[in-house]
Amino acid sequence: MAKKNVKTNVMRILDIEKINHKELSYPVSKDHVDGVSAALGLGKDPKSVYKTLVTQAASKAYYVFVIPVAENLNLKKAARACGEKNIEMIHVKDINKVTGYIRGGCSPIGMKKAYPTFVDQSAQNMEAITVSAGKVGYQVELSPQDLIDLIGGQYADLLA
Rank of each mutant, 00 (worst) to 15 (best):
N5F: 14
K7L: 14
M11L: 03
I13C: 10
L14Y: 06
E17Y: 13
K18D: 14
S25W: 02
V28N: 02
V28E: 13
D31I: 14
D31E: 14
G35Y: 09
V36I: 15
V36K: 12
L40K: 13
G41T: 07
G43P: 00
G43C: 01
K44L: 10
D45W: 09
P46D: 12
P46G: 10
K47W: 10
A61M: 04
V64M: 01
V66G: 01
P68C: 14
V69K: 08
A70M: 15
A70W: 15
L73Q: 04
A78W: 08
A79W: 07
C82N: 09
G83D: 12
E84S: 09
K85D: 12
N86R: 14
I87D: 01
E88R: 15
E88Y: 13
M89F: 13
V92S: 07
D94N: 03
D94H: 00
I95T: 06
K97N: 00
K97A: 00
V98H: 05
V98K: 01
T99I: 02
T99R: 01
Y101S: 02
C106Q: 00
S107D: 03
S107H: 01
I109N: 01
M111Q: 09
A114D: 11
P116R: 13
T117P: 01
F118M: 00
V119H: 08
Q124M: 15
M126I: 05
M126R: 14
I129P: 02
G134K: 02
K135M: 14
G137Q: 09
V140L: 02
E141V: 05
L142P: 05
P144V: 06
P144F: 10
P144S: 12
P144N: 11
D146L: 08
I148F: 09
L150S: 03
I151K: 02
Q154W: 05
Y155A: 03
Y155V: 07
A156Q: 08
